[in-house]
C-alpha cells in the first residue's frame, strides 16, 4: 500500500501551476497558517525590547525566578548558540543598553572621522591601549556599531591574562573579546570581520598616570605584518578619556603575583575603598578615527621586508599619537 502511495506522489507526476490553476482553497489555507503562526508567536516569549505585562508574582514562581537569576549571575538571557569565537548576540544586545548609557551619559563619547571606517570588512582598527580593564575596546566597538551604516559588531583583542581572568573571561568572550594573537587575527580577517587591536599590549594597559597618552612601543610589528599578508586596510584610532577612568598612581607588584595579575594598580580610590574603588571615573571621551593607511600599492612580498614593516609600524604609531593629541586638544577638560 505504502509503495503505491509513494509512486503516486512521485515528483514527476505532480503537475500544478500556481499561476494558471488557482485553487480557491489556497486562501483558506493561508488564513489557517496565519492564525497558527499567531498562536505560536503568542506562546513564545516576546522579543527583547517589547513591553511584557508582568504576571502577578506567586511565591513559588518568585522563588524559582530568584534561583534562576542567582544561578546564572547576570547572564539570564543567553542564546543557545554562539559564534565560533564565543560572541553571544543576545548577551551583547542586552549589554548594549548599559553601553549606550556609558556612551551617551557617563563618558559622553564624542566620535570624529567615522567616514574613514570602511563600509565592509575586513578591516584592522589600531588603537591606543589604556586602563587595565578593556573599557576602551568595548567603547570603540560600540561606537562603530552605533554609527556604522551596517551596524557591524567589531571584535576587540584582549591580552592573555585578561581573557582568562576569572569572572571576566565569560563576559569578554560573549561581548566580542578575543585573545590577541596572530592566528585569531588571521581567522577573523579571513571571515571579513572588523577587528580592533591594541598593539601596545600590556605596556599600554600598565601605564601610570603621569605617562598618560604617550604611546609605547608597538610590539614587534605583528599588526602591520598581518595587514600586509591579508591585504586589509589599517585604520588608526585615537582614544582619549580612557586613561582617566582609572588613574594609576603606581603599580604594586607584590600582592599582584598572589592574585595572578600582572600588577596591582593603585588608584586614588583602589584598593582604598575596596571593590567600590573599581568604579570607573566619568571622564570625557573622544574617539578619533584617522584616514586608513593604504597598503594596496605595496607588493605582496612586502610582508617579509622587515625594514618596511618597522617603518610602517612607526608611521602608524605617530599617526595614532597625532590623533590622540588632537583629541586631547578638542577636550576642554578631563571632565569636559
Amino acid at each position: 500500500m505504502v509503495d503505491e502511495r509513494d509512486s503516486n506522489l512521485a515528483p514527476g507526476d505532480v503537475e500544478t501551476d500556481p499561476a494558471t490553476d488557482f485553487d480557491p482553497g489556497v486562501g483558506d489555507l493561508r488564513e489557517a497558517l496565519d492564525s497558527l503562526r499567531r498562536e505560536i508567536r503568542a506562546r513564545f516569549p516576546a522579543p527583547l525590547g517589547e513591553d511584557v505585562p508582568r504576571q502577578p508574582a506567586e511565591w513559588p514562581a518568585l522563588f524559582n525566578e530568584l534561583r534562576r537569576r542567582l544561578s546564572t549571575i547576570g547572564m539570564i538571557e543567553r542564546s543557545g548558540e554562539v559564534d565560533e569565537f564565543g560572541m553571544d548576540e543576545i548577551v551583547l544586545r542586552r549589554t548594549r543598553a548599559v553601553l549606550d548609557l556609558a556612551y551617551e551619559h557617563y563618558w559622553r563619547v564624542e566620535v570624529h572621522g567615522l567616514e574613514h571606517v570602511p563600509d565592509a570588512g575586513p578591516c584592522l582598527l589600531v588603537a591606543n591601549r589604556s586602563g587595565l580593564l578593556p573599557y576602551d575596546g568595548l567603547m570603540v566597538c560600540h561606537a562603530i556599531h552605533r554609527n556604522h551604516p551596517r551596524h557591524v559588531s567589531p571584535r576587540f583583542f584582549a591580552a592573555d591574562w585578561l581573557i582568562t581572568l576569572p569572572f571576566v573571561q565569560p563576559y569578554l568572550a560573549r561581548l566580542g573579546g578575543v585573545r590577541a594573537c596572530r592566528e585569531n587575527a588571521e581567522r577573523l580577517l579571513a571571515s571579513k570581520h572588523f577587528v580592533v587591536v591594541f598593539p601596545e599590549g600590556i605596556k599600554g594597559a600598565a601605564k601610570v598616570f603621569r605617562e598618560r597618552y604617550r604611546l609605547k612601543r608597538f610590539g614587534r610589528g605583528g599588526v602591520v605584518r598581518v595587514a600586509l599578508e591579508n591585504r586589509v586596510p589599517i585604520v588608526p584610532v585615537g582614544v582619549v578619556g580612557a586613561e582617566e577612568v582609572h588613574p594609576v598612581l603606581f603599580k604594586w607588584g607584590m600582592p599582584a603575583r598572589a592574585l595572578g595579575l600582572p600588577f596591582l594598580p593603585v588608584t586614588p580610590t583602589f584598593p582604598l575603598f575596596g571593590p567600590l574603588g573599581l568604579m570607573p571615573l566619568p571622564s570625557k571621551w573622544v574617539i578619533r578615527f584617522g584616514p586608513s593607511i593604504p597598503i594596496d600599492h605595496l607588493q605582496p612580498d612586502a610582508a617579509t621586508d622587515e625594514l618596511l614593516i618597522s617603518r610602517l609600524t612607526e608611521d602608524l604609531r605617530s599617526k595614532i599619537q597625532t590623533l590622540v593629541d588632537t583629541g586631547l586638544a578638542d577636550r576642554e577638560s578631563v571632565w569636559g
Binding site: 565560533e84 569565537f85 564565543g86 582568562t164 578575543v178 585573545r179 594573537c181 596572530r182 592566528e183 585569531n184
Partner: peptide, 9 residues
C-alpha cells in the same frame, strides 16, 4: 592553556 589561539591547527 591560557595562551592557546581560539582554534588550534
Amino acid at each position: 592553556r591560557p595562551d592557546n589561539p581560539n582554534f588550534l591547527t
